[in-house]
C-alpha cells in the first residue's frame, strides 16, 4: 500500500499538466476527429450524420454529372505547404546555427543578454510583425523603393504574394525556435573536443562538420521539428504574405471554418496535417533508433 502511495507521489508533479493536456488537447483533437466524419451544417457547424465526404474531397471533386473525379488541387496545396515548411526549416537552420554557435561561444553574462535579444520578436504581436513585412516587400515598399531609387531596377520586383514571401515570413517567425535548442546543444558541447579535432589535422570547417554538427544534432533535430510543425499549419504568414493565390494548408483550414463553412472538411484537413507531422516524427524516431540511441546527452 505504501509502495503504491509512493508511486502516486512520485508522479504527482505530472497530474496538473496531464489534466490540462487531457482537457485542452486530447478532447479538441477528438472533437475534430469526430467532426471530420460528419456532414457540414448549412450555416457552419456539423450535421450529425456519418460521412466520409470530407476525406474524399481531399482528392476528388464531384463534377457536373455527380461523378467523383480526381482533383489534385488540394494535394498541390499540401505539397506546397510541405515544401514551404521544409524551406523554412532549412532557412531557419542556415540562419540559426551560426547565431546559436556564436552565442554559445560568448561569456556567460553575454550569453544571457543575447538569449534575451533572441526573444525580443515575441514581445510584439505576430500579426503586426507580419504586416510590417508587407510594408517591406510590397511594390512600393522598402526594398523595391530602395532599389529603384538606387537605379538598380526600373520596375518593382514581385516580392509580396509569392511562396518566397511566405517562407520569409515563416523563417522570420520561427528562427528563435531553431536557435534555442541548437544553442542548448552547443552550450553543452565540450570545447576541448574541437581542439582535439584541430590537433588531429582538421581545420575549423572540418572540425565543424565532423565534431560540432554531429554533436549538435539533437538540437538541430529538435529545432527542425519545432519549426516544421508550426510552419506546416501556419496561416497568418501565408494569408498576409501569400495573398489569396498561394493557399497553404493552414489557411485552407481556417477558410473552411470561416467563410467556406465546411467544418468537416476543415477538420479532415487538420487531421491530414497532424498525420503528416506524426509521419515525420515516426521516420525520425526510426532513424534515430537505427543510429543507436538517437538523441545523446
Amino acid at each position: 500500500m505504501t509502495q503504491f502511495g509512493a508511486k502516486i507521489r512520485s508522479h504527482a508533479a505530472l497530474i496538473p499538466a496531464t489534466i490540462v493536456i487531457g482537457i485542452f488537447m486530447i478532447v479538441p483533437i477528438l472533437i475534430i476527429l469526430v467532426y471530420s466524419f460528419l456532414a457540414p451544417g448549412d450555416y457552419g457547424g456539423v450535421k450529425p450524420e456519418f460521412s466520409t465526404d470530407a476525406y474524399q474531397r481531399l482528392l476528388f471533386q464531384r463534377d457536373l454529372f455527380d461523378q467523383m473525379v480526381f482533383d489534385p488541387a488540394y494535394l498541390k496545396i499540401a505539397f506546397r505547404s510541405v515544401w514551404v515548411a521544409v524551406v523554412s526549416v532549412v532557412g531557419c537552420l542556415v540562419l540559426g546555427f551560426p547565431v546559436a554557435y556564436y552565442i554559445a561561444c560568448q561569456s556567460e553574462e553575454r550569453r544571457n543578454i543575447y538569449l534575451l535579444l533572441i526573444t525580443i520578436p515575441f514581445w510584439t504581436n505576430l500579426l503586426i510583425r507580419t504586416y510590417c513585412w508587407i510594408l517591406v516587400l510590397r511594390d512600393t515598399g522598402l526594398i523595391n523603393g530602395g532599389l529603384i531609387r538606387l537605379g538598380l531596377i526600373d520596375e518593382p520586383l514581385t516580392l509580396l504574394y509569392t511562396e518566397g514571401a511566405i517562407a520569409l515570413g515563416l523563417i522570420y517567425t520561427y528562427v528563435p525556435f531553431m536557435v534555442l535548442p541548437i544553442y542548448a546543444a552547443l552550450e553543452r558541447l565540450d570545447r576541448r573536443l574541437i581542439e582535439a579535432a584541430r590537433d588531429l589535422y582538421s581545420n575549423r570547417w572540418v572540425a565543424l562538420r565532423h565534431v560540432v554538427i554531429p554533436l549538435a544534432m539533437p538540437g538541430i533535430i529538435a529545432g527542425s521539428i519545432l519549426v516544421y510543425i508550426p510552419a506546416l499549419g501556419a496561416f497568418i504568414a501565408p494569408d498576409l504574405l501569400g495573398g489569396g493565390k498561394n493557399l497553404m494548408l493552414g489557411s485552407l483550414v481556417q477558410l473552411q471554418f470561416s467563410s467556406a463553412r465546411n467544418w468537416p472538411f476543415g477538420s479532415a484537413l487538420a487531421m491530414v496535417i497532424m498525420a503528416m507531422v506524426l509521419l515525420c516524427l515516426f521516420f525520425y524516431a526510426r532513424s534515430a533508433k537505427k543510429n543507436g540511441g538517437g538523441i545523446q546527452h
Partner: peptide, 12 residues
C-alpha cells in the same frame, strides 16, 4: 599530436 588531460575522445 596531443593526449588531452580529460582524453577528449569524440563521444559520437
Amino acid at each position: 599530436n596531443t593526449v588531452f588531460q580529460h582524453y577528449s575522445l569524440f563521444p559520437h
